[in-house]
Amino acid sequence: MIQFPGAHSAHDPAGPQALLLDRLGDLLYLIAAVVYVLVAAALLAALLRRRRAEEDAEDPARERRMATAVAIAAGTTVATLVAVLLLSFGTGRRLTATPPPEALQIRVTGHQWWWEVEYRDATPARWATTANEIHVPVGRPVALELRGDDVIHSFWVPNLGVKRDMIPGHATSVLFQADAPGVYRGQCAEFCGAQHAKMGFLVVAEPPEEFAAWLDRQRDSARTPADSLARRGQEVFLASSCAMCHAVGGTPAGGRLGPNLTHVAGRRTIAAGTLPNVRGHLAGWIIDPQQIKPGARMPASAIPPADLRAILAYVESLR
């Protein structure tokens, strides 16, 4: 299984929607190939065919024959297009079915240049907020509510066959389902500024029990770290600018300008699918995000090495 950067091919469908799209694509390629060969062959034949010396370019009998041929070709074109259209409508209808009641509801909000993910619940206390990594249970439909916070982004996961724009002031929705467990890469598809290129995310499809356990963990607040280095890290974190932008559940840190870090250590990547979540990258990111994502909305910080080590220990304790 590809862990980083995650599978990302429209040719490798992992759910019913993606499968439908892949099949539709295959049919379209086939039709296009056949028509292409026919047209190219007719053109080459017209250019290269042997001519008799006495042939008259505008021989009326042949003009009539050609008129028939053009009409047949046009008729075939119409028929082919109608067929393509019906195929496309058929696929479209099956894609846009209304979400069944058992569908999992997730709200995803696009920010420059990361994704906020909220699992809402009837009781607000059970809401879980995370970022850049969306877990879904295998085999259960997922209904997404998509929002744009600042500019337009677009939520796209090729292997799952979903793409939908996230438009400020106008929520959109889309339905998908993952049938095969795996890690699928998603990517922002609508140009959204400097770091559009590095606005990725992961969809982790896992068996329902694992998913349920994961979601329960996400609902918890962060545990107060046990070891002293991490505890010192928490103090530094809360005392420095980090807390102004990041929220950590169960602490005073409640910033909303950046991703929620309550369980950041449990995520596979940092900086919106850009780097594997390992200590070296994490350190590099915290010291100078601009090196990795120039223009990102997180400033570099001059943290003394000791403090940095403490912060890293703290962040890594946020499982």
Partner: peptide
């Protein structure tokens, strides 16, 4: 002719709403 109709056919593909969901903005 040989180049344009390739683009014409991909045009017909992206004109299909569901197909376009995969390839739009790619």
């Amino acid at each position: 002719v040989l180049v344009f109709i390739v683009g014409g056919f991909t045009g017909v593909m992206v004109a299909s709403v569901p197909y376009d969901m995969q390839v739009h903005d790619t």
